[in-house]
Computed example of a mutant assay.
Amino acid sequence: MGMSGLTALVTGGTAGIGRAVAVQLAREGAEVVVHGRDADRGASVVAEIETAGGSARFVRADLADSGDIKRLAQEAGDVDVLINNAGIYKFLPTSDMTEDLLDQHMSLNTKAPYLLVKALAPGMVQRGRGSIVNISTLAAAVPTKGTGMYSASKAALEQLTRIWAAEYAEHGVRVNTVAPGPTRTPGTDAMDAVTLKAVADTTAMRRIAEPEEVASAVTFLASHRASYITGTVLEVAGGRPAIG
């Protein structure tokens, strides 16, 4: 997809969707800055990319710390592609949601992407090119019990996507969001067959996504193939089942 010579920063790039995105971007020729909190997992992703002939490095940072976010942006350098993937989710009814958890959701899912865009987008503007892809969730559009704070923090990110798209479009910087549905994770791997089927049946395709399927959509939006796409929220969710 013509990403040779570009630098991509993937937050939360050591597992799940983030890891799959990092691997795919490297395969397309980008030099990938893999962000995470676990150095061993970071080294594993870098090794996987380098074994396949790609280029990557790991930067550890705590996205709950504004100072660490600024350091991450500085160490990442001239970023051409920013993937805001890292986040937190805790499913609880409103009556059980603590103030601390509320703050964590807004800090990691909304504030951290905001600060990274604030730090890195000006460089993209100066170079006249750039692509930002935020990772949201289908739950931001479909009311789901227990996901209130998670959904709200991601809905805010989706609105920021539209605002950033309008703000940076004339400078050659595109901003989009991918909203995955149920996706295979260590959590789904631990589910019993009945629970997993119930989750899969919330989609029209009656199955959950593989991380690589979501990553393919992210990689497309980050690439020049999506050169006339900005301000969109792309659902990668297996379709919504019909009522009745």
Rank of each mutant, 00 (worst) to 15 (best):
K90V: 15
E167D: 15
F58Y: 15
A242L: 14
Q159H: 14
E50G: 09
M3V: 01
V45P: 11
H224M: 01
G5T: 09
H224A: 15
G12L: 05
V178K: 05
A141S: 12
S136K: 07
R19Q: 15
G77W: 06
S153A: 12
H105Q: 05
M191F: 13
G187Y: 12
L160F: 15
A169V: 14
Q74S: 15
L221H: 07
A165E: 03
A20W: 08
I208K: 00
T219S: 12
R57N: 06
M106E: 12
L234C: 06
G148W: 08
V178H: 06
L9C: 11
A226G: 03
A140E: 14
T230R: 07
G231R: 02
G181T: 03
R184T: 04
G181N: 03
D189M: 11
V59L: 15
A200N: 09
V125F: 03
A165W: 04
P241V: 01
G77C: 02
A166Y: 11
Y150C: 06
M1R: 14
Y89E: 13
E170T: 07
Y89S: 10
H35D: 03
A73L: 05
A121Q: 07
R129M: 09
G5M: 10
W164F: 10
E99N: 01
A226Q: 09
P143I: 06
T51P: 03
S131C: 07
V81Y: 10
P182W: 09
D40P: 00
A152Y: 10
V199N: 01
V59K: 12
N176Q: 11
Y89F: 12
V10C: 08
L116P: 00
A139V: 15
A237P: 05
S44M: 11
A209S: 14
A152T: 14
T11E: 07
L101C: 02
A222V: 01
G239K: 09
A112D: 08
R37F: 01
V236G: 04
N134F: 05
A52V: 04
P180E: 12
I88K: 15
T183W: 07
A200T: 06
V194D: 13
A198L: 11
E170I: 02
A156I: 10
R57K: 12
R162F: 13
L25R: 04
S4C: 06
I208E: 02
G187P: 00
A64F: 00
V10Y: 08
A217Y: 02
P122K: 04
I135N: 08
L234V: 13
E48W: 06
A61W: 13
V175Q: 12
A200W: 05
I88D: 11
T161S: 02
A73V: 02
